[in-house]
């Protein structure tokens, strides 16, 4: 990716691994947040009480 930073050391070509790790971190964290937010919308206050009444019968 950033060619100027790639040296000639032992661990060369590790940028691929770095990008995969950062991408995976963001995918997981954003995914968790989106899932949590969507689910919290689904069981909002209105449907919550409905579910409670429906469940008790």
């Amino acid at each position: 990716m950033d060619e100027s930073q790639v040296g000639s050391g032992m661990v060369d070509g590790a940028w691929g691994y770095v990008i995969v790790v950062y991408a995976a971190t963001w995918v997981v964290v954003v995914g968790l947040a989106v899932r949590a937010l969507l689910a919290s919308r689904g069981s909002g206050p209105a449907s919550r009480t409905d579910g409670g009444v429906g469940g008790s019968t």
Binding site: G7, V18, V21
Partner: peptide, 12 residues
Amino acid sequence: MMREAGRILYAH
């Protein structure tokens, strides 16, 4: 020592 691979640690 780890060069670019060391950057993984900021996420890890």
